[in-house]
Design a binder for these strands. Structure first.
Length: 329
DNA sequence: CGGTTTTGACCCGCGC
DNA sequence: GCGCGGGTCAAAACCG
């Protein structure tokens, strides 16, 4: 299972990072974006904007620091895991190479754990062929299916499990699984059988607004369109690229989400984020220097890209508005 | 009419 | 060996 060996450094900048901030900063941020909606005299506007920019830059710095701490914590955790595994070989079999398909499935809905993939990353990394290996057909066994998992935020009322990612899919089945009342839809690439890619789409059991799309395999044909990755409600989602860091934002009414897919430090990924190079991603980020570079690149992208600032502002301001009503997230 | 979706049946691996 | 449950098949329905 490739996804367990990948470092999912996706940042759900929803609100959680803000919870890491001290109260003073929270108030500062809150006042920042509440002020955005107020009318100011034209003369003061330029100065206010500059001040606003400075504040946002400072905010980005804070986020960068948080990100750095997160990476350090991840490294620490991984080292602990490696130590533990070296002392207790085979003690984490459930998530190691011999993992059962259904056990792996149980982690599908853990949408709140952005380090879910990262914590599984380690010496016990599971190969991408594990899940594919459960398929008995020999022709599929030699296919090292790349498995990636993408979370989409949609309207809760939107019951269609349609995830428009630019590729064309043909639905070949739907099933209600035991641990999730929402049905799981099975899709094959429309270019099948020449293209072996499959996709499973199911709503998260924890948040019906979140649709989990699991991609298996790699497209062996060019991306049919340059469509943005959108949910069925295309007005609520957009995908942008921040420097080299693709970023998808979801601004549904149920709450804005910014997801940075930081698993793609270079161009060796196709448009759906899968690694199309032969290099295992965890090897890339194993090096501390590269990790540092990754952090710096992420930070650079965050601080330099105005669209990110706009998205962040929208996300945070929207979140604060939402928090006035519910304090769910 | 051809492609897609729906949906019940079937297959098969896994746990007991 | 049996039952459960996930994944797939395939015929019918649907749609442009």
């Amino acid at each position: 299972m490739e996804y367990t060996s990948l470092i999912d450094t996706s940042l759900d900048l929803n609100i959680k990072p803000l919870r890491l901030l001290d109260d003073g900063l929270k108030q500062e941020v809150q006042s920042n974006f509440i002020d955005l909606g107020t009318k100011v005299p034209v003369k003061e506007e330029a100065g206010a904007l500059v001040e606003e920019l400075n504040r946002v830059s400072a905010e980005n710095k804070k986020l960068t620091e948080i990100l750095t701490v997160l990476c350090e914590n991840y490294n620490s955790l991984r080292n602990h895991l490696m130590d533990y595994m070296s002392k207790n070989p085979g003690s984490i079999d459930n998530n190691s190479g011999g993992s059962r398909k259904r056990k792996a499935e149980s982690t599908t809905n853990n949408i709140n754990s952005i380090n879910n993939n990262a914590t599984n990353n380690g010496p016990s990394e599971t190969s991408s062929s594990d899940e594919a290996g459960s398929c008995k057909k020999p022709r599929e066994e030699h296919i090292k299916a790349k498995i990636s998992r993408v979370y989409f935020r949609t309207e809760a009322s939107d019951t269609s499990l349609i995830v428009k990612d630019g590729y064309q899919w043909r639905k070949y089945g739907q099933k209600v699984t035991r641990d999730n009342p929402s049905p799981r839809a099975y899709f094959k690439c429309s270019f099948a059988p020449s293209c072996p890619v499959k996709k499973k789409v199911q709503r998260s059991v924890e948040d019906q607004c979140v649709v989990v799309a699991t991609y298996e395999g790699e497209h062996n044909h060019p991306h049919p369109t340059k469509m943005e990755t959108t949910s069925s409600n295309s007005n609520n989602r957009c995908v942008t690229t921040l420097g080299s860091v693709p970023c998808s934002t979801s601004l549904s009414s149920s709450g804005p989400t910014i997801t940075l897919d930081l698993t793609k430090p270079n161009k060796s990924h196709d448009q759906e984020g899968r690694n199309i190079s032969g290099t295992p991603r965890n090897k890339v980020v194993d090096s501390p220097e590269l990790q540092q570079f990754l952090v710096e690149q992420m930070a650079s992208s965050l601080t330099k890209d105005p669209s990110f600032k706009a998205a962040l502002a929208a996300a945070i301001s929207g979140k604060f508005l939402q928090h006035n009503q519910t304090d769910k997230w």
